[in-house]
Simulated assay, not measured.
Amino acid sequence: MGFIKFTKGTSLSNKDRKALQKLLTDEKKKLQSALKDVDASLSMLGGSKKKAKKKK
C-alpha cells in the first residue's frame, strides 16, 4: 500500500472518505492476518528453543 499524506486543511468528499476507509480497513485485515502468521511462527520457534534447552 502506498503512503497517503494529508496536509492541514485538506478535506475529502464523502465518496473519497468512504473509499479510503474501505481501502484502509482491507489493508488492516491483511496486516492482522499476516501478524497472526508471524506470531504463530514466533511461538513455534520459541517452543523449539525451550525444548532444545531441556534436552541439554
Rank of each mutant, 00 (worst) to 15 (best):
S11D: 13
K50F: 05
S43N: 07
Q32K: 15
K15P: 01
A52Q: 11
K51I: 04
R17C: 10
A40L: 12
K29P: 02
D37H: 13
S33T: 15
K36V: 14
K15T: 13
G9K: 02
Q32R: 12
L24R: 05
G46C: 04
F6A: 06
A52H: 06
S41V: 05
L35D: 02
D37Y: 06
E27W: 06
S41Y: 02
F3Q: 11
I4R: 12
I4N: 06
K22L: 07
S41A: 14
L23P: 00
T10M: 09
L12N: 01
A34P: 00
A34V: 08
K22P: 00
K54C: 04
L42P: 00
F6C: 02
L42V: 03
G46D: 13
T10F: 07
D39I: 00
K36C: 07
L20M: 10
G2T: 06
D39W: 00
D16G: 02
M44R: 10
A19M: 04
M1A: 08
K29I: 14
M44P: 00
D39P: 00
G2A: 12
E27N: 03
D39L: 02
M1K: 12
T25K: 08
S48V: 07
N14V: 10
S11H: 11
K29H: 15
S48W: 07
K56S: 04
K51W: 05
K30C: 09
A40E: 15
Q32V: 04
T7D: 14
N14E: 15
G47H: 13
S13M: 02
Q32P: 00
F3W: 12
T7E: 11
K8H: 06
S13T: 15
K22Q: 05
D26W: 03
I4P: 01
G9T: 02
N14G: 12
A34R: 14
K28L: 08
S48R: 09
L42S: 06
L31T: 13
K22R: 08
G47W: 10
K5P: 01
K54P: 00
L35N: 03
S48E: 09
K36P: 00
G9V: 00
L35Y: 14
I4T: 09
M44L: 05
L23W: 11
L23N: 06
K51D: 05
K29A: 15
A34N: 12
K18C: 04
K36T: 14
S43A: 06
A40S: 14
G46A: 12
D37W: 11
S11F: 14
M44I: 04
S13C: 03
F3R: 14
K55M: 14
K5T: 10
K29M: 12
L31A: 10
Q21M: 08
K5V: 08
Q21N: 07
F6H: 07
L35E: 08
L24F: 09
K50D: 13
L20H: 05
F6G: 02
K54F: 01
M1I: 09
E27I: 01
S11V: 14
L24V: 07
S48L: 08
R17T: 06
L35F: 11
S13H: 05
K15H: 11
K29G: 12
S11T: 14
A19S: 08
K18I: 10
S13E: 11
S41T: 09
